[in-house]
């Protein structure tokens, strides 16, 4: 391609060029897979996400707070989700925290009572019945998340699980009526699951913001504009 410019490095360049072309087409293919999975996930979960967002809006109006939690990369996605609710680029800020934000609390609980209890013990300490718990997992199986969701459910919180694969134990809990909502991304790839979960979280936030405005002003009323909300806060 550009051989006429660099004839002296032709041998080396040809090899790297081949790899770079492969990498680029691989990136395109994976991104297309991700986009397709995001679309099918949001279509499948459309009604459930709307119902869940409505329930979340009612709890925020009742003074509820949102707690998000996960392990590893999912803990960072949980933090991103909490930040979206608490400090949105647009819309009404809502009280939301990530339960991995405080290293002192996480390590104290992990060391003293066991890693499986790092979230459930925080739920016991922080939560009230009007609150909301969202656990992010790709397998749906992590013990610490399941314990956190069980404790939250026992205390009357709205409980939501994000899962992948076949939904794992979160799906079982939901089927047994012990979890309010499970949103499962039907994929075997941890990365593609997390990308779709980001979209689910964003959609939940969007619905919650909509419903909050409608519950306050009644359907059909003009929505409060973002600037008005920001100016009033």
């Amino acid at each position: 391609m550009s051989d006429f410019l660099y004839p002296f490095i032709e041998g080396q360049e040809t090899d790297a060029t081949g790899l770079l072309a492969d990498l680029a087409s691989s990136a395109r293919r994976k991104a297309a897979e991700s986009a397709a999975l995001q679309a099918s996930t949001l279509a499948e979960l459309h009604d459930a996400i709307h119902a869940c967002g409505e329930a979340m809006a009612r709890r925020f109006l009742d003074g509820g707070r949102l707690y998000t939690f996960g392990n590893g990369g999912s803990s960072t996605d949980a933090a991103t989700l909490a930040a979206l609710f608490a400090q949105p680029a647009d819309g009404r800020p809502l009280p939301a925290w990530s339960l991995t934000a405080d290293q002192a609390v996480v390590t104290a609980l992990g060391n003293d009572v066991g890693f499986d209890l790092i979230f459930s013990r925080q739920v016991i300490a922080h939560s009230r019945p009007a609150d909301i718990a969202i656990a992010l997992s790709t397998s749906g199986n992590s013990d610490d998340l399941i314990m956190g969701l069980r404790e939250a459910r026992k205390r009357g919180l709205l409980t939501v699980g994000f899962a992948g694969y076949d939904g794992g134990r979160m799906a079982e809990l939901a089927a047994a009526g012990d979890l309010d909502w499970v949103f499962t991304v039907r994929s075997q790839s941890i990365h593609r699951i997390q990308e779709s979960q980001a979209r689910i979280g964003h959609r939940l936030w969007t619905v919650t913001q909509h419903r909050l405005t409608e519950l306050r002003t009644g359907p059909g009323q003009p929505m409060t504009t973002a600037t008005t909300v920001k100016g009033a806060s």
């Binding site: 072309a21 986009a35 995001q38 099918s40 819309g91 973002a226």
Partner: peptide
Amino acid sequence: TSLEERPQSATTELIDEELAADLAGAAL
């Protein structure tokens, strides 16, 4: 308002050809 859900269909191109080439070069 801007809170309205923005449609993002399956046809949304998340990584176009130029960005894919940038990613390939960055990865190497």
